[in-house]
Design a protein around this nucleic acid. Structure first.
Lengths: 139, 139
DNA sequence: CTTGACCCTGTAGTTCCTACAGGGTGCATG
DNA sequence: CATGCACCCTGTAGGAACTACAGGGTCAAG
């Protein structure tokens, strides 16, 4: 139960379902801090890197841009930042997240409907498109 | 209350918060069918195009690739497709949607926490990163 | 001490847009 | 009726976020 041994870039990539090249790219654009290097110049990652990369990957999968993720990470990093600033950013992101939640919820509902109907002849009345049709600003 | 008059590409783009160039690009890659043209060679869109483009845009915003959206649209289009096939695709997409829902729900929760805490000195214990940390395969 | 899996840097290619350049359309207005 | 001005057309080039080599070094196993 000592500290976990450092991971190589391959380990980290495997643990987060990421390509090795992508991990290096995140380092280049400063989403992921440059880790220590071994004697043989290998990158060595710790659990902090794992958490951070996991966050980045899931954020990307949810449709956030790299800049938005950078902003969310900065919020977590600079905890002595002005409260008003954090509040404003967090509120903006929350509004966006709630819009995405609403859209995803309706899409999940329609997919379940399609799956439920499947068992007879054909997909009678598919409303998948309606699930994400206009219902306010898709800003 | 007659049929709505056809929209120009600018109208359609404005209605879906999309750039005109992007609409033309979707046509080129066959996500959006090529519409009728006016005498002066302007594209003329109807409500079907609006629904479809809206679906595409929201799908992209939710992190689906163009190919995944193509698959979802095909499911809605070819309603006389083999039931088993639609079922398999729908199940795969539903699993992905539910993973995204879980992630977004946790992110929304953490953002609300941050907003709630803001009112005193500093962001004491920010757990935003934990919201999207490892908890199963982020496939 | 070699072999194979893995790491390094760098550059070029892919996807999904985004931004012009150079030119035509269409309607209001003098 | 002509002359703006906003909008449309077809390109092609650029940017964001990866992805895939090429050419070479590291290292544990046998």
């Amino acid at each position: 139960m000592a500290h976990a041994p450092p991971m190589t870039i391959g380990d980290l990539a495997a643990a987060t379902n990421t390509r090795v090249e992508t991990v290096r790219w995140y380092e280049k654009v400063k989403l992921l801090p440059a880790p220590e290097r071994s004697a043989g110049n290998y990158r060595l990652y710790g659990p902090e890197h794992l958490r951070r990369l996991s966050f980045i990957r899931r954020g990307r999968d949810l449709g956030f841009t790299v800049d938005q993720i950078r902003e969310l990470l900065a919020m977590a990093d600079d905890r002595d930042r002005s409260c008003a600033e954090v509040d404003t950013i967090a509120r903006a992101h929350l509004a966006q997240v709630e819009r995405k939640l609403a859209d995803l919820t309706r899409l999940a509902h329609e997919l379940r409907d399609v799956i439920g109907q499947c068992g007879c002849g054909s997909v009678a009345d598919c409303r998948i498109i309606e699930a994400l049709s206009p219902h306010g600003d898709p800003s």
